[in-house]
Design a protein around this nucleic acid. Structure first.
Lengths: 154, 154
DNA sequence: GATTCAATGCGAAAGGTTAACAACACACAA
DNA sequence: TTGTGTGTTGTTAACCTTTCGCATTGAATC
């Protein structure tokens, strides 16, 4: 989406940052793969297809930048890699309802939307005085494809 | 709690594992600090008070063992350390309702119990066919103490 | 085009965690 | 109690993702 790219350029400039080909290319890698959760190394590999001389450190630095600008979301599955995906609702502050289903067998990741936690967060504010500003929900289990496979194996 | 310790010893034996002083000591460190979320290094430091010659690798190995036996819970705050705490309801499979509130200012961690997610998990099973077996919920925000401090600073 | 300073690429370092392996000690039997 | 076998430990080095330092490059501005 060129719109997204122009927004990114403008965002960089308004923050006193420079627009570079590397930054554009890295954003595009993520932007062209919505719903994919890429590790830094995977992003590095994809970017090098069109930008062979880019350095891994630049990828890490840009990822951090994109994360601070709230353009991408971080996902940690505790497998030694941090993964990143393009933000589902870019830089709107109503983007707190994006959760993940993680299949323990095949590793595939599904996203789902839910605002069930708002009630909970209100209750927490009332009972504990704790003001929730963000949350992260990961649900582990078995996806429908793996459940079906198990049935067939009998 | 010596009860807990005897259970642990029995659990080791029934799994063909050996009861060692190191393993007992590490479990006790966590057992004596319910609600505390200790890093491997912190556990290492506490154990060495009574067991100066223990090796760091043994701590890591035992942590993994205790985790596989479902005696301790893992908590990853994405700060470079994995933290561990004694399981709130040991090895009962009704222990899925233990979540965390994490203060972004002072870093303190509060636990809270909630079964609100059961509805959600049932709905996911019905709509997506995904069978949730475990979940992890982290709520980030500002604790009541930090909110009060901010008020005083005016 | 010249200037400036942020951004890049390279290499090395950091830092938590794991692997290798010889020495040790728990469990069980005699 | 002594002996035997195998799981466990401690030490050290390696692993692997991520970050740092620094010289060089290139974007932005005039």
């Amino acid at each position: 989406m060129p719109n997204n790219q122009e927004q990114f350029k403008a965002l960089l400039r308004t923050n006193g940052l420079k627009v570079t080909n590397q930054r554009i290319a890295i954003l595009e890698v993520l932007n062209n793969r919505p719903g994919k959760h890429l590790t830094a190394e995977e992003i590095y590999d994809y970017v090098r297809e069109e930008f062979p001389d880019i350095g891994l450190a630049t990828v890490y630095r840009t990822i951090q930048l994109l994360s601070e600008l709230n353009l991408i979301d971080k996902l940690n599955l505790d497998d030694g890699y941090v993964r990143y995906e393009i933000g589902s609702k870019n830089q709107e502050d109503s983007c707190h309802h994006h959760h993940h289903l993680i299949c323990l067998e095949c590793g595939s990741i599904y996203a789902f939307q839910d605002d069930l936690l708002e009630n909970l967060e209100n209750r927490i504010k009332e009972t504990l005085g704790f003001e929730v500003s963000d949350h992260e929900v990961k649900l582990y289990g078995h996806c429908i494809a793996c459940i079906r496979e198990e049935g067939e194996e009998v």
